[in-house]
């Protein structure tokens, strides 16, 4: 299979790294060659963060370039706008509708753009969900990452058991129930 590319984008502190670990785990269990590339350090302090997940028979580049992503999984709606140029023609955006104000908006230097989901919807194939609401329903705002993995799981041709097995393998035992609920809510959203 040709290499496929998924980007996970969000705000430092939102738990994107757990999402990429889950995804990496699932893809390896499906027998793919996998590369997952993330940036640690500075940007984790509330900055814009991106993780690249690539899989196929033989993956070379660890990064995804503009116009290459088959799927973008976005944790925050402004980040969807920021990274949309990375989506390939016919690709799919799965996005949280949550808004987290960046510092230039907080200081009043610029406004937070309006109607991003609608505008993106006119440009590309977009699935938008309120993952924060679902995470709170599952029991914790921190479970946004697993809710979004649940939403993504519906769009990929991989059996549900494989996702559940990855959650069992990657998530610490005491958060397992919470994350299973979060996954189910995302998957059925």
């Amino acid at each position: 299979m040709n290499t496929r590319s998924i980007m996970i984008v969000g705000v430092g502190g939102q738990g994107t790294l757990l999402a990429s670990r889950l995804l990496g785990h699932v893809l390896i269990e499906q027998g793919y060659d996998v590369k997952v590339s993330e940036v640690h350090g500075m940007s984790q302090r509330g900055g814009s963060v991106v993780t690249y997940v690539r899989y196929g028979d033989r993956v070379h580049s660890p990064i995804v370039d503009e116009g290459e992503a088959d799927v973008i999984l976005s944790f925050e709606i402004l980040e969807s706008a920021r990274w949309i140029s990375y989506l390939r023609e016919g690709g799919m955006l799965v996005t949280n509708t949550q808004k987290t104000w960046p510092m230039p908006v907080i200081t009043g230097a610029v406004p937070y753009p309006e109607n991003i989901a609608e505008k993106l919807g006119a440009m590309a194939n977009v699935t938008a969900v309120d993952a924060l609401k679902l995470a709170e329903e599952a029991g914790s705002a921190k479970a946004v990452n697993v809710v979004l993995i649940g939403v993504l799981s519906r769009k990929m041709d991989i059996p549900e058991e494989a996702w559940l097995a990855a959650i069992d393998a990657v998530v610490p035992a005491k958060f397992l129930e919470l994350n299973r609920r979060a996954f189910a809510l995302g998957r059925n959203a």
């Binding site: 302090r45 116009g67 920021r82 023609e89 960046p102 908006v105």
Partner: peptide
């Protein structure tokens, strides 16, 4: 990156979408 190498060699780079409004930066804080 792969695209920078493609472009430098005069090869085609994939078409990409443009969000037509300014997107505020998100510096670390």
């Amino acid at each position: 990156s792969q695209n920078r190498i493609r472009a430098a060699m005069g090869a085609a780079v994939p078409a990409s979408l443009k969000y037509d409004e300014a997107v505020p930066g998100r510096p670390p804080v």
